[in-house]
Design a binder for these strands. Structure first.
Length: 755
DNA sequence: CGTATATATCTTTTT
DNA sequence: GATATATACG
């Protein structure tokens, strides 16, 4: 094995690698030179092809690890690929450029930062900082932030960056009406500030790479020299900027292999262009196109259901996935189950999990895949109640937590005094008596002099521009920073962090905090210090924080998985639960509203991705009612439910839910299961109703109208602060209440309860 | 300045 | 229901 890379390229080298591949897979591996497009359906052994291909290239002596560039979309995919290649070649993948677009972009950018106006220790800012900066720019331009929210502009600019547009390149018709067409001007200012701050946002990592390559052909040429073989995973999810980046790099060797599946393109909202796949053959004439259609993952029923569903999409490249049925086994049909509300949905899933457990199925092989994050809660609560261990994959990630970001801001500021965003984040955390007013003053002075906040502060503490008390707080802060900076060079990152967290009073702040979350935050801070021990330099660590975001998951305890459909891509499980298949939830209402037909098709692809995660069992659920934003909402089953071919599905018997029928003042539940195709006529909108149990145990559902209860005029109510009172008049959701003790007050209906 | 209370807005999905 | 922002008060 050790002479793997140095042995002369015998024609048979690496043949052991491809022995167990099917014909199409083998073709994808053996087409080593020139452009290759692999259209890989779900479960067709894509990762296997990818990894074997790389191992094969090396085994043939075509390239050393350092001459291979392999790009993935997610860190998880990168990690997995790295591990599997290591397994194949029997050694770590050292030297190989393997990572996400952004991670590799950052790596390249650090080497040549000066050429695009940055220093090599530039900061990669997160969405928090991005927003903070944007708000300042909007304010500086005297634009009403209420009307033109910074968040909106941030995402507009991100989309522009996805397209590869610098401020000058945004086409006139795309400028939009943000702040009456000032969007581009604000974009320009935003970039200007980023340069001043020696910072780059996510989009810049690629955009600045493009600029670097275009303005400095010699540098591009050096990467042509370096990268002999390019490999791209999830090609259907690349945006234009990534596409341009790849095209530039591939100009050298033309040995580029892209793997993708148009049916699994689910990142259109983030600028992904399926068109990149369709365009491949034009961009790379003579490209070999290989289709992987033999599915090794799912049962015939699951595959049939998924194929039937995705067939409703127009504009596909068209693949027909097939399995070779094992002795005519179809497996279990996809189960479709209607439930009353999300609580019952969670209960149903919980029971099925327990059933499976009793039959020796492991939790690791079960996954609940939801459309949006807010859906996880009901399942978490239920699984806790019945004592089933679970993990939420994705969710709010470790490095996105407030305390972690604060801690990192300290470290950033120590490393780079120009980091105003970090400065602003923590200068008064914990409290140093520097409120809004002081910060405003400070900011104005600093900007006026063109200095960073920290530099300006050093001056300001010697003048009387701030009142003495504030000055003292600020002095303490900058002295702390200066001291830590002096220590930074001779301490390993984790020790420095420990000292900073302690001496700054940050840890103390959380220890004094009595809220329920405080202990967890302290725990996270400890975890942070522990995680830092793995890193040699602060540099390395902070890059990890901004680019990798998640923390290595611990050893594989047996736990059920809960995650969004998006984060499920690339994974597979024996059993997959697909709850929330209701119009409005899935397909997601906003998605359809904003992107129309294209949005709907992307939702359908998401459904397809969900189904094809399942090896043996898929259970689709839809609830008649659920709370969204704390308000009850009634939904009809998703059109996707109807699109599942009948001969691959089975309706589960469900108990205890049905329709609401008018019966005078009360609304009662009438038992009736929704029938296939009944969406419109039979399963019409269920009137919002709330379950209430009476003394004798009988449960009835009381309609509450759209939204929450609004107490009637004259009713007695209770308010947290004002106590008991009586409603005098109602104006929309505002109530005029005469309280027994506090007198007359205007209060939002949400703040009172019926007494 | 800091705190508490009132209101608004929010939920897509992620590097 | 949870969280960011605005306002009022101490």
């Amino acid at each position: 094995m050790s002479d793997l890379f140095h042995s002369p390229a015998a024609p048979t080298a690496g043949s052991h690698l491809i022995e167990r591949l099917n014909q199409a897979q083998r073709q994808a591996v053996e087409a080593v030179d020139g452009p290759v497009l692999v259209l890989a359906g779900a479960g067709t052994g894509k990762t296997r092809v990818l990894t074997v291909r790389l191992a094969y290239i090396m085994a043939q002596g075509k390239a050393a690890p350092g001459q291979i560039l392999a790009v993935t979309f997610t860190n998880r995919a990168a990690r997995e690929m790295s591990e599997r290649i290591a397994g194949l070649i029997g050694r770590p993948t050292e030297g190989m450029w393997l990572g996400t677009f952004h991670a590799i972009g950052a790596r390249i950018l650090r080497r040549h930062a000066e050429l695009v106006g940055l220093r090599s220790n530039f900061t990669i800012i997160d969405t928090d900082d991005q927003l903070r900066l944007m708000k300042q720019i909007i304010e500086a331009n005297q634009i009403d932030e209420k009307r033109w929210p910074g968040r909106a502009l941030t995402s507009i600019i991100s989309r522009w960056k996805d397209k590869g547009w610098t401020p000058d390149q945004v086409p006139a018709e795309e400028i939009g009406d943000f702040a009456h067409g000032k969007g581009v001007e604000l974009y320009k200012q935003y970039q200007h500030r980023l340069t001043e701050l020696n910072a780059a946002d996510f989009g810049d990592l690629l955009l600045l790479n493009l600029r670097l390559f275009l303005e400095h052909p010699d540098i591009l040429a050096s990467y042509h020299q370096r990268f002999r073989y390019l490999l791209v995973d999830e090609y259907q999810d690349t945006n234009v900027a990534q596409y341009l980046w790849l095209r530039l790099l591939a100009q050298g060797s033309r040995n580029i292999c892209c793997v993708g599946d148009d049916d699994q393109s689910i990142y259109g909202w983030r600028g992904a262009e399926v068109g990149n796949i369709l365009r491949f053959e034009q961009d790379f004439p003579g490209a070999v196109v290989v289709r992987l259609e033999r599915n090794y993952r799912s049962t015939a029923h699951i595959l049939g259901a998924a194929s039937g569903l995705i067939a409703n999409n127009q504009g596909r490249l068209g693949k027909t996935l097939f399995t070779e049925p094992v002795e005519g086994e179809m497996g279990e049909p996809v189960k479709i189950q209607g439930v009353w509300d999300e609580a019952e949905e969670a209960r149903t899933v919980g029971e099925t999990i327990e059933d499976l457990q009793r039959n020796d199925h492991v939790l690791n092989e079960m996954a609940i895949l939801v459309r949006a994050g807010y859906q996880t809660r009901a399942f978490e609560e239920r699984l806790i109640t019945i004592g089933v261990p679970y993990r939420v994959v994705g969710g709010l990630r470790f490095y996105e937590r407030q305390e972690i970001r604060d801690a990192c801001a300290y470290l950033r500021l120590i490393r780079q005094g120009d980091d105003d965003l970090a400065f602003q984040r923590i200068v008064n955390t914990p409290k140093r008596g520097l409120g809004n007013k002081s910060l405003q003053t400070l900011y104005t002075i600093a900007r006026g002099r063109g200095q960073s906040l920290l530099t300006a502060s050093e001056d300001i503490v010697t003048t009387d521009e701030l009142p003495p008390q504030r000055r003292a707080g600020l002095r303490r802060f900058i002295e702390d920073i200066a001291r830590w900076r002096a220590e930074a060079s001779r301490l390993p990152p984790s020790e420095l962090a420990e000292i900073v967290l302690d001496e700054s009073g940050y840890t103390g702040m959380w220890m004094a905090d009595k809220s329920v979350q405080a202990p967890g935050r302290l725990e996270n801070l400890k975890e942070l210090v522990r995680a830092m021990a793995e890193f040699e330099s602060m540099e390395e660590f902070l890059d990890h924080v901004s680019l990798v975001m998640d923390v290595e998951t611990g050893p594989g305890d047996d736990m059920a998985n809960i995650m969004t459909l998006h984060s499920a891509k690339g994974l597979e499980f024996d059993t997959v639960f697909l709850p929330g298949w209701e119009e409005g939830v899935f397909p997601n209402q906003r998605s359809v509203e904003e992107s129309g037909h294209a949005g709907l098709e992307e939702e359908r692809r998401l459904a397809y991705v969900g189904l094809t995660r399942a090896r043996k069992r898929a259970i689709v659920l839809h609830a008649a009612n659920r709370t969204v934003h704390g308000q009850w909402q009634s939904n009809i089953p998703s059109r996707f439910v109807d699109e599942l071919p009948e001969d691959h599905t089975e309706r589960a018997e469900a108990a205890g839910y049905g329709f609401v029928q008018d019966e005078g003042a009360l609304w009662q539940i009438a038992m009736n299961r929704p029938q296939r195709g009944d969406r419109q006529s039979n399963y019409h909108k269920v009137i919002e109703a709330r379950s209430q149990r009476f003394g004798d145990g009988e449960e009835v559902f009381i309609p509450v109208g759209r939204g929450n209860d609004v107490p009637a005029i004259g009713s007695r109510v209770f308010h947290q602060k004002f106590g008991y009172g009586m409603v005098k008049s109602i104006d929309g959701s505002k109530l005029d209440i005469t309280f027994d003790k506090a007198g007359q007050k205007k209060v939002m209906a949400d703040f009172v309860k019926l007494a």
